[in-house]
């Protein structure tokens, strides 16, 4: 990739909005995301952050605005104007999605190796040995023992499932990964290990990440920039340390003081 295109944002979100009938899901969200950048979207439940994530990952159709993505070939496309085939292809190659509930992102009845290998097979890899090798490699990178490769994730602990889900997403070297509360529901010690791993992977691979979380500690540890949402709108945005150390909006102040003290 040339330095020239690296100056361009990977993702441009322009006045994005979603209404559910008369109720507002989110409104007027604009931002740019550059390669290698991690953006945290924080807010309480009902703030619109999950709606936003569903829009960004094209699982929901917006009622207003546009999302432009710089494809691997350098062309910039409106993701909602991609054909269904293009969009599904994008989602299983250049994008990843890590769900809070690993069962939603994994095939629970299929072995760990096949879970990791599925994306490779989906894009046409037809060599069992290579697929297995790639799966072993990725299991290692997410710290899952090689001898678990033929076990189904049903037998995995919560933390392992989450790491497996990450490996399954990263095997095609995506450039953009969406994460929905990836540490939610895990024990504190397990969370710490997972966050550590994620931080390492994101830095090593130069991933762009949009992570939705209600946990400001997660945002501080992983993200470069932060967006605070309330009632469907972005109320504050900036560098993570800046926003968390010196929040401007009274709501953000409340959020920071109530959570970070714990």
């Amino acid at each position: 990739m040339s330095a020239l295109t690296d100056d361009l944002p990977l993702l441009t979100v322009d006045r994005l909005g979603k209404n559910y009938g008369s109720r507002i899901g989110c409104r007027d969200v604009s931002f740019e995301l550059y390669a290698g950048e991690v953006l945290a979207v924080v807010g309480e439940s009902g703030s619109g952050k999950s709606t936003l994530l569903s829009l960004l990952s094209t699982q929901l159709q917006p009622t207003a605005g546009a999302i432009r993505y710089r494809m691997r070939d350098g062309s910039v496309r409106d993701v909602f104007e991609l054909s269904q085939a293009e969009r599904r292809f994008l989602m299983r190659t250049d994008w990843g999605f890590v769900h809070q509930d690993a069962a939603q992102g994994l095939r629970m009845a299929v072995s760990a190796g096949a879970n990791v290998g599925e994306r490779l097979m989906a894009v046409g890899d037809r060599h069992y040995g290579n697929i297995r090798h790639a799966a072993l490699d990725w299991l290692g990178r997410v710290e899952i023992e090689a001898d678990r490769i033929d076990d189904a994730p049903r037998s995995f602990s919560g933390g392992m499932r989450q790491r497996l889900q990450i490996a399954r997403n990263l095997v095609t070297n995506p450039r953009l990964v969406f994460m929905d509360e990836p540490t939610g529901g895990l024990d504190v010690s397990v969370q710490a290990r997972l966050l550590d791993l994620l931080r390492g992977l994101v830095a090593d691979l130069g991933l762009s990440v949009i992570i939705v979380t209600h946990d400001l500690a997660v945002a501080r540890l992983l993200s470069h920039r932060i967006m605070v949402m309330r009632q469907g709108r972005v109320i504050e945005t900036g560098l993570t340390d800046q926003v968390l150390d010196d929040p401007r909006e009274p709501y953000t102040q409340l959020l920071v003081s109530s959570v970070l003290q714990v």
Partner: peptide, 8 residues
């Protein structure tokens, strides 16, 4: 046998 990863 390799030790299986203990449940976290």
């Amino acid at each position: 046998d390799m030790m299986r990863e203990a449940a976290e």
